[in-house]
Protein backbone atom coordinates (compact mmCIF):
# COMPACT_ATOMS: atom_id res chain seq x y z
CA UNK A 1 0.00 0.00 0.00
CA UNK A 2 1.41 3.36 -0.94
CA UNK A 3 1.74 6.12 1.60
CA UNK A 4 0.80 9.50 0.25
CA UNK A 5 1.40 12.81 1.90
CA UNK A 6 -2.04 13.05 3.43
CA UNK A 7 -2.82 9.38 3.75
CA UNK A 8 -1.51 7.57 6.78
CA UNK A 9 -2.92 4.15 7.38
CA UNK A 10 -0.50 2.33 9.68
CA UNK A 11 0.46 3.26 13.26
CA UNK A 12 3.95 4.63 12.60
CA UNK A 13 4.93 8.04 13.94
CA UNK A 14 4.11 11.12 11.91
CA UNK A 15 6.04 14.40 12.13
CA UNK A 16 3.35 15.59 14.53
CA UNK A 17 3.68 12.62 16.90
CA UNK A 18 7.47 12.98 16.69
CA UNK A 19 7.10 16.57 17.85
CA UNK A 20 4.93 15.47 20.78
CA UNK A 21 7.59 12.99 21.81
CA UNK A 22 10.42 15.48 21.65
CA UNK A 23 8.47 18.10 23.62
CA UNK A 24 7.72 15.51 26.25
CA UNK A 25 11.43 14.64 26.48
CA UNK A 26 12.39 18.29 26.91
CA UNK A 27 9.77 18.82 29.61
CA UNK A 28 10.90 15.74 31.46
CA UNK A 29 14.53 16.84 31.31
CA UNK A 30 13.75 20.28 32.76
CA UNK A 31 11.64 18.86 35.57
CA UNK A 32 14.42 16.39 36.39
CA UNK A 33 17.08 19.09 36.42
CA UNK A 34 14.97 21.21 38.77
CA UNK A 35 14.74 18.26 41.14
CA UNK A 36 18.48 17.70 40.97
CA UNK A 37 19.14 21.39 41.66
CA UNK A 38 17.04 21.05 44.78
CA UNK A 39 19.45 18.53 46.24
CA UNK A 40 22.51 20.60 45.41
CA UNK A 41 22.23 23.25 48.16
CA UNK A 42 21.44 20.59 50.74
CA UNK A 43 24.61 18.64 50.03
CA UNK A 44 26.62 21.84 49.61
CA UNK A 45 25.52 23.07 53.04
CA UNK A 46 26.27 19.79 54.73
CA UNK A 47 29.61 19.54 52.94
CA UNK A 48 30.61 23.08 53.91
CA UNK A 49 29.67 22.60 57.55
CA UNK A 50 31.44 19.28 57.83
CA UNK A 51 34.66 20.38 56.14
CA UNK A 52 34.91 23.65 58.06
CA UNK A 53 33.37 22.69 61.38
CA UNK A 54 34.15 19.04 62.01
CA UNK A 55 37.62 19.81 63.34
CA UNK A 56 36.14 21.86 66.21
CA UNK A 57 33.70 19.18 67.34
CA UNK A 58 35.21 17.64 70.42
CA UNK A 59 33.84 16.37 73.69
CA UNK A 60 34.88 19.65 75.24
CA UNK A 61 33.02 21.64 72.58
CA UNK A 62 29.82 19.69 73.17
CA UNK A 63 29.97 19.44 76.95
CA UNK A 64 31.46 22.70 78.23
CA UNK A 65 30.44 26.32 78.45
CA UNK A 66 32.08 29.00 76.32
CA UNK A 67 35.12 30.65 77.89
CA UNK A 68 37.53 33.51 77.13
CA UNK A 69 34.87 35.78 75.63
CA UNK A 70 33.43 32.90 73.56
CA UNK A 71 36.72 32.33 71.77
CA UNK A 72 37.29 29.03 73.55
CA UNK A 73 35.32 26.32 75.39
CA UNK A 74 32.12 24.86 74.01
CA UNK A 75 28.41 25.28 73.39
CA UNK A 76 26.87 23.04 76.05
CA UNK A 77 24.61 25.74 77.57
CA UNK A 78 23.31 26.59 74.11
CA UNK A 79 22.40 22.96 73.39
CA UNK A 80 20.60 22.67 76.70
CA UNK A 81 18.88 26.04 76.14
CA UNK A 82 17.60 24.99 72.73
CA UNK A 83 16.20 21.77 74.22
CA UNK A 84 14.42 23.81 76.91
CA UNK A 85 12.92 26.15 74.32
CA UNK A 86 11.62 23.45 72.01
CA UNK A 87 10.41 21.36 74.94
CA UNK A 88 8.37 24.15 76.51
CA UNK A 89 7.07 25.53 73.22
CA UNK A 90 6.06 22.01 72.17
CA UNK A 91 4.27 21.45 75.49
CA UNK A 92 2.20 24.57 74.80
CA UNK A 93 1.72 24.47 71.03
CA UNK A 94 1.12 20.75 70.44
CA UNK A 95 -1.95 20.24 72.67
CA UNK A 96 -3.56 23.56 71.73
CA UNK A 97 -2.79 23.14 68.04
CA UNK A 98 -4.01 19.55 67.87
CA UNK A 99 -7.21 20.32 69.78
CA UNK A 100 -7.93 23.36 67.62
CA UNK A 101 -7.27 21.30 64.50
CA UNK A 102 -9.69 18.62 65.68
CA UNK A 103 -12.35 21.21 66.44
CA UNK A 104 -11.97 22.92 63.09
CA UNK A 105 -12.04 19.71 61.07
CA UNK A 106 -14.60 17.68 63.02
CA UNK A 107 -16.94 20.11 64.75
CA UNK A 108 -16.82 23.60 63.27
CA UNK A 109 -19.92 24.37 61.21
CA UNK A 110 -19.49 25.43 57.59
CA UNK A 111 -20.05 29.15 57.95
CA UNK A 112 -18.30 32.48 57.62
CA UNK A 113 -16.90 32.38 61.17
CA UNK A 114 -15.08 29.13 60.41
CA UNK A 115 -13.87 30.52 57.10
CA UNK A 116 -12.53 33.61 58.90
CA UNK A 117 -10.73 31.43 61.44
CA UNK A 118 -9.17 29.34 58.69
CA UNK A 119 -8.13 32.47 56.85
CA UNK A 120 -6.59 33.85 60.04
CA UNK A 121 -4.60 30.65 60.51
CA UNK A 122 -3.23 30.80 56.98
CA UNK A 123 -2.25 34.42 57.47
CA UNK A 124 -0.73 33.79 60.87
CA UNK A 125 1.46 31.14 59.26
CA UNK A 126 2.76 33.79 56.88
CA UNK A 127 3.73 36.35 59.52
CA UNK A 128 7.51 36.91 59.49
CA UNK A 129 9.32 35.61 62.55
CA UNK A 130 10.67 39.04 63.48
CA UNK A 131 7.07 40.23 63.80
CA UNK A 132 6.37 37.31 66.12
CA UNK A 133 9.41 38.44 68.09
CA UNK A 134 8.01 41.94 68.58
CA UNK A 135 4.62 40.49 69.47
CA UNK A 136 6.33 38.24 72.03
CA UNK A 137 8.08 41.22 73.64
CA UNK A 138 4.84 43.16 73.83
CA UNK A 139 2.53 40.38 74.91
CA UNK A 140 4.58 38.01 77.04
CA UNK A 141 7.64 39.93 78.25
CA UNK A 142 5.93 43.24 79.01
CA UNK A 143 2.13 42.88 79.17
CA UNK A 144 1.99 39.54 80.99
CA UNK A 145 5.12 40.49 82.90
CA UNK A 146 6.89 37.21 82.22
CA UNK A 147 10.15 39.07 81.60
CA UNK A 148 12.83 37.82 79.25
CA UNK A 149 12.65 34.15 80.08
CA UNK A 150 12.44 30.69 78.61
CA UNK A 151 8.68 30.93 79.12
CA UNK A 152 8.31 34.13 77.09
CA UNK A 153 10.55 32.82 74.32
CA UNK A 154 8.78 29.46 74.22
CA UNK A 155 5.35 31.08 74.11
CA UNK A 156 6.54 33.24 71.22
CA UNK A 157 7.79 30.14 69.41
CA UNK A 158 4.49 28.41 70.21
CA UNK A 159 2.48 31.23 68.64
CA UNK A 160 4.71 31.02 65.60
CA UNK A 161 4.37 27.24 65.18
CA UNK A 162 0.67 26.94 66.10
CA UNK A 163 -0.84 27.76 62.70
CA UNK A 164 1.18 25.09 60.94
CA UNK A 165 0.41 22.52 63.63
CA UNK A 166 -3.29 23.31 63.27
CA UNK A 167 -3.11 23.12 59.49
CA UNK A 168 -1.24 19.81 59.44
CA UNK A 169 -3.59 18.34 62.06
CA UNK A 170 -6.59 19.33 59.95
CA UNK A 171 -4.99 17.84 56.87
CA UNK A 172 -4.23 14.57 58.66
CA UNK A 173 -7.81 14.31 59.95
CA UNK A 174 -9.28 15.16 56.57
CA UNK A 175 -7.34 12.28 55.01
CA UNK A 176 -9.42 9.78 57.02
CA UNK A 177 -12.26 8.69 54.70
CA UNK A 178 -15.67 10.12 55.55
CA UNK A 179 -17.16 6.65 55.11
CA UNK A 180 -15.58 5.61 58.43
CA UNK A 181 -17.26 8.49 60.21
CA UNK A 182 -20.61 7.57 58.64
CA UNK A 183 -20.21 3.98 59.74
CA UNK A 184 -19.43 5.03 63.28
CA UNK A 185 -22.19 7.66 63.55
CA UNK A 186 -24.85 5.36 62.19
CA UNK A 187 -23.90 2.76 64.79
CA UNK A 188 -24.80 5.34 67.42
CA UNK A 189 -21.36 6.69 68.24
CA UNK A 190 -21.12 10.30 69.33
CA UNK A 191 -18.83 12.62 67.43
CA UNK A 192 -16.23 12.35 70.16
CA UNK A 193 -16.40 8.55 70.28
CA UNK A 194 -15.93 8.53 66.52
CA UNK A 195 -12.94 10.85 66.76
CA UNK A 196 -11.38 8.90 69.62
CA UNK A 197 -11.91 5.35 68.34
CA UNK A 198 -11.71 5.83 64.58
CA UNK A 199 -10.40 9.17 63.34
CA UNK A 200 -7.44 9.78 65.66
CA UNK A 201 -5.92 6.28 65.47
CA UNK A 202 -5.88 6.66 61.69
CA UNK A 203 -4.45 10.16 61.58
CA UNK A 204 -1.96 10.15 64.43
CA UNK A 205 1.01 9.63 62.11
CA UNK A 206 0.17 12.72 60.09
CA UNK A 207 -0.51 14.79 63.18
CA UNK A 208 2.76 13.83 64.87
CA UNK A 209 4.73 14.42 61.70
CA UNK A 210 3.36 17.95 61.52
CA UNK A 211 4.19 18.60 65.14
CA UNK A 212 7.74 17.30 64.90
CA UNK A 213 8.47 19.30 61.76
CA UNK A 214 7.44 22.40 63.66
CA UNK A 215 9.71 21.45 66.54
CA UNK A 216 12.67 21.43 64.20
CA UNK A 217 11.58 24.76 62.78
CA UNK A 218 11.35 26.22 66.29
CA UNK A 219 14.82 24.89 67.06
CA UNK A 220 16.33 26.91 64.24
CA UNK A 221 14.57 30.25 64.75
CA UNK A 222 16.58 33.16 66.07
CA UNK A 223 14.46 36.28 65.83
CA UNK A 224 11.54 35.20 68.06
CA UNK A 225 13.82 34.24 70.94
CA UNK A 226 16.36 37.02 70.62
CA UNK A 227 14.37 39.66 72.52
CA UNK A 228 12.18 37.35 74.57
CA UNK A 229 14.43 34.92 76.40
CA UNK A 230 17.67 33.95 74.73
CA UNK A 231 20.88 35.41 76.15
CA UNK A 232 24.20 36.08 74.42
CA UNK A 233 26.08 34.46 77.21
CA UNK A 234 25.12 32.88 80.51
CA UNK A 235 27.63 31.29 82.81
CA UNK A 236 25.03 28.92 84.28
CA UNK A 237 22.36 26.54 82.99
CA UNK A 238 18.69 27.50 83.35
CA UNK A 239 16.97 26.10 86.43
CA UNK A 240 13.38 26.95 85.53
CA UNK A 241 11.26 28.46 82.77
CA UNK A 242 11.68 31.84 84.44
CA UNK A 243 15.40 31.90 83.67
CA UNK A 244 16.94 33.06 80.44
CA UNK A 245 18.95 30.60 78.42
CA UNK A 246 21.43 30.42 75.62
CA UNK A 247 20.34 28.84 72.37
CA UNK A 248 22.18 27.32 69.40
CA UNK A 249 20.68 29.61 66.78
CA UNK A 250 21.35 32.68 68.90
CA UNK A 251 24.86 31.51 69.70
CA UNK A 252 25.57 30.98 66.03
CA UNK A 253 24.50 34.55 65.34
CA UNK A 254 26.67 35.81 68.20
CA UNK A 255 29.88 34.00 67.32
CA UNK A 256 29.43 34.78 63.63
CA UNK A 257 28.87 38.51 63.90
CA UNK A 258 29.15 39.93 67.41
CA UNK A 259 32.38 38.66 68.93
CA UNK A 260 35.92 39.25 67.66
CA UNK A 261 38.66 36.60 67.48
CA UNK A 262 36.38 33.54 67.43
CA UNK A 263 38.19 30.54 65.89
CA UNK A 264 37.02 30.11 62.30
CA UNK A 265 35.67 26.63 62.91
CA UNK A 266 33.39 27.60 65.82
CA UNK A 267 30.43 29.03 63.87
CA UNK A 268 30.53 26.11 61.44
CA UNK A 269 30.70 23.60 64.26
CA UNK A 270 27.78 25.29 66.03
CA UNK A 271 25.76 25.21 62.83
CA UNK A 272 26.65 21.56 62.34
CA UNK A 273 25.35 20.71 65.81
CA UNK A 274 22.13 22.65 65.17
CA UNK A 275 21.65 20.99 61.81
CA UNK A 276 22.30 17.55 63.29
CA UNK A 277 19.67 18.22 65.94
CA UNK A 278 17.11 19.31 63.34
CA UNK A 279 17.89 16.43 61.00
CA UNK A 280 17.62 13.99 63.89
CA UNK A 281 14.15 15.30 64.67
CA UNK A 282 13.14 15.01 61.04
CA UNK A 283 14.42 11.47 60.73
CA UNK A 284 12.63 10.55 63.91
CA UNK A 285 9.48 12.03 62.41
CA UNK A 286 9.88 10.09 59.16
CA UNK A 287 10.53 6.89 61.08
CA UNK A 288 7.47 7.37 63.24
CA UNK A 289 5.35 8.09 60.20
CA UNK A 290 6.55 4.96 58.45
CA UNK A 291 5.91 2.86 61.54
CA UNK A 292 2.40 4.18 62.13
CA UNK A 293 1.52 4.04 58.43
CA UNK A 294 2.48 0.41 58.23
CA UNK A 295 -0.02 -0.37 60.97
CA UNK A 296 -2.91 1.29 59.18
CA UNK A 297 -4.57 -0.24 56.15
CA UNK A 298 -7.81 0.36 54.39
Amino acid sequence: MSRGETEHTDFSATPMTEASHSRQKIARAFLGIATALLLLPLFAIIGLLVTHGMSAITAEFLLEAPTAGMTAGGIYPAIIGTLWLIGVSLAVAAPIGIMAGIYLNEYAPENWVTRMINLAIVNLAGVPSIVHALFGVGAFVLFLGLGTSILSASLTLAVMTLPVIIASTKEALASVPVAFRHASWTLGASRWQTIWHIVLPNSVSGILTGVILQVSRAAGETAPIMFTGAAFYLPFLPQSVQDQCMALSMHLFTVSTQVPNVPEAFPYATALVLLTLVVTFNFFSIGLRTYLRARRKW
Binding site: P177, F180, H182, A183, G188, A189, I198
Partner: peptide, 26 residues
Protein backbone atom coordinates in the same frame (compact mmCIF):
# COMPACT_ATOMS: atom_id res chain seq x y z
CA UNK B 1 -32.28 6.62 67.46
CA UNK B 2 -29.30 5.29 65.54
CA UNK B 3 -29.00 2.33 67.85
CA UNK B 4 -32.53 1.32 66.84
CA UNK B 5 -32.28 2.32 63.18
CA UNK B 6 -29.21 0.81 61.56
CA UNK B 7 -27.78 1.68 58.17
CA UNK B 8 -25.94 -0.13 55.39
CA UNK B 9 -24.18 1.98 52.78
CA UNK B 10 -23.59 1.83 49.05
CA UNK B 11 -19.92 1.07 49.41
CA UNK B 12 -19.15 -1.42 52.16
CA UNK B 13 -17.54 0.65 54.92
CA UNK B 14 -16.14 -1.64 57.57
CA UNK B 15 -14.09 0.31 60.09
CA UNK B 16 -10.29 0.00 59.80
CA UNK B 17 -10.12 -2.28 62.83
CA UNK B 18 -10.35 -6.04 63.28
CA UNK B 19 -13.33 -8.12 62.21
CA UNK B 20 -14.12 -8.77 65.86
CA UNK B 21 -13.94 -5.09 66.79
CA UNK B 22 -16.14 -4.17 63.85
CA UNK B 23 -18.94 -6.47 64.88
CA UNK B 24 -18.66 -5.40 68.51
CA UNK B 25 -18.16 -1.67 67.81
CA UNK B 26 -21.79 -0.65 68.31
Amino acid sequence: LRKRVGMVFQRPNPLPISIRDNVLYG
